[in-house]
Design a protein around this nucleic acid. Structure first.
Length: 362
DNA sequence: AAACCGGGGAC
DNA sequence: GTCCCAGGTTT
C-alpha cells in the first residue's frame, strides 16, 4: 500500500464525512469527562443501545466529581441491562482516581489515559483525539473492517500480529489529517457504508482503490481466528416470600458472570431437570435456610437468557417462609417494593417484571 | 495467547 | 442459528 493510496483514502473519507449523518449527543462535547463516559458505555455496544444510558449517566452525574461520590449500588443500578458490568465498576474506580490523584482533571495524553481502569488502547486513542486533539488513530471493529478491506489484509484481527499490523495501517491512514475528525469519519464510514454485510460498495467513495472490492473479497474480510464456544448453564433461583411483602436477595461475589449484581439465592445444576422438592438436597443449599420451615408454592417455566458464551436457563422456585428473619449472613431481606433499588441480571429483572404485570408478586 | 465478561439487533 | 457491536482485563 503506497503513500498515494493512503492519501486517496484520507481525502475521500474526509470528503465523505458529515457529522450530522450519525448524530450522537457526545459529538457536541469536547470535554474529556463526557467523551470518556460515552466511550466506556459504547465499548462492545451499539450506539443505538448505549445512547439512552449515556443520557441518563450524563444527567445524573454532570461532572466527574459527581460520579466519583456516587454509591456503588446506585451506579450499578443505572448500568443495569447494559451488560459487561466490570465497565461500571471500572467507571467508578476511574472517576475516583481522577478526582483523588489528578485533582479532577483527566490525563491529556494517550499513555496517561491508559492508566485509568477500563481504558484500553481504543478508548485512550478516542479520548486523546476527541478531547485533547492528539494525533492518534483509533482502532475499533469498524476500523478493522474498513482497513482490512481497503488494503486487502487478511491477518486475523484478534491476533497479536493483527493488532500490531492494523495499528500501523491506521496510523498510516491517519497521516497528518485532523485526528478527531478522521477518527469520527472512519467509524461512521464503517457503520454506514463499509458494513459487515450488504456493504454499499456501489456508492463507496473509496471503491476505486479498494483491494477487497477489486479481488471480490469484501465479505471474506476482516478475518477472525477464534471460534465462539458456548456452554449451557441451569440456574434455580429460590424466591422466598413472607407474609409482609418481603423477599430475600444476595449480592453475587464470585468471579463469574454478573459479579456484584443482586439475585435470589441460587442453586446451579448440571442438568435442566430438578424437582423443587429436591432443592434442599443440593450441596449449595444455604445453611441459614431451614428447609423444614418453607412451604413450596410454585415453579416458573425456564427463562432462557442468551449471552455471548453462555446460555442460561433460569427456573424460579417460589416458597413461603412464615418466620423470615430480618437479616442474616450473606443475604438481604428487603421489602418487595424496594427491589427497584438493586441491580439485577436481565433474566431476573424480566421475571420480576412478569410477576408485577400479572399482579402476582412484588 | 487464550479465556472471560452481557445484551440486543440484523440476517 | 450466526455474527457483530465506537473493547478491556485476567489468567
Amino acid at each position: 500500500m503506497t503513500v498515494d493510496r493512503w492519501h486517496h483514502f484520507r481525502e475521500n473519507l474526509l470528503g465523505w464525512y458529515r457529522p450530522e449523518r450519525r448524530p450522537m449527543p457526545w459529538k457536541e462535547h469536547n470535554d474529556p469527562y463526557n467523551i470518556w463516559l460515552s466511550e466506556i458505555i459504547l465499548q462492545q455496544t451499539r450506539v443505538e443501545q448505549g445512547t439512552a444510558y449515556y443520557e441518563r449517566f450524563a444527567a445524573t452525574y454532570p461532572t466527574v466529581r459527581d460520579l466519583a461520590r456516587a454509591p456503588d449500588d446506585e451506579v450499578m443500578k443505572l448500568w443495569e441491562g447494559l451488560g459487561y458490568y466490570s465497565r461500571a465498576r471500572n467507571l467508578l474506580k476511574a472517576a475516583r482516581m481522577v478526582v483523588d490523584q489528578y485533582d479532577g482533571d483527566f490525563p491529556d495524553t494517550y499513555v496517561g489515559l491508559l492508566k485509568l481502569p477500563g481504558v484500553g488502547p481504543y478508548t485512550a486513542a478516542a479520548i486523546a483525539s476527541f478531547a485533547f486533539d492528539r494525533q492518534v488513530a483509533v482502532l475499533d471493529g469498524n476500523v478493522y473492517r474498513v482497513l482490512s478491506r481497503y488494503a486487502g489484509v487478511a491477518t486475523p484481527t484478534d491476533s497479536t500480529a493483527g493488532k500490531h499490523q492494523f495499528s500501523e495501517l491506521a496510523t498510516l491512514a491517519l497521516g497528518e489529517a485532523p485526528a478527531a475528525r478522521f477518527n469520527q469519519a472512519i467509524m461512521d464510514f464503517g457503520a454506514l457504508v463499509c458494513t459487515p454485510r450488504k456493504a454499499a460498495c456501489k456508492v463507496c467513495p473509496l471503491a476505486k482503490a479498494c483491494v477487497a472490492l477489486a479481488e471480490n473479497r469484501v465479505y471474506d474480510l476482516p478475518v477472525k481466528e477464534k471460534k465462539l464456544k458456548r456452554r449451557d448453564r441451569h440456574f434455580h433461583y429460590l424466591v422466598i416470600k413472607d407474609d409482609s411483602e418481603r423477599t430475600i436477595i444476595q449480592q453475587r461475589s464470585e468471579k463469574d458472570i454478573w459479579q456484584d449484581l443482586y439475585q435470589f439465592p441460587l442453586l446451579e445444576t448440571p442438568k435442566k431437570t430438578l424437582a423443587s422438592a429436591d432443592l434442599p438436597l443440593h450441596p449449595d443449599w444455604p445453611a441459614w435456610l431451614p428447609a423444614g420451615e418453607l412451604t413450596f408454592r410454585k415453579r416458573s417455566q425456564p427463562f432462557k437468557q442468551q449471552l455471548t458464551h453462555q446460555t442460561i436457563y433460569a427456573t424460579f422456585h417460589t416458597f413461603h417462609w412464615k418466620l423470615m428473619p430480618g437479616s442474616g449472613e450473606g443475604f438481604v431481606v428487603t421489602q418487595n417494593k424496594l427491589l427497584d433499588n438493586f441491580a439485577f441480571p436481565r433474566v431476573i429483572a424480566k421475571f420480576i417484571e412478569d410477576k408485577r404485570l400479572l399482579l402476582d408478586l412484588f
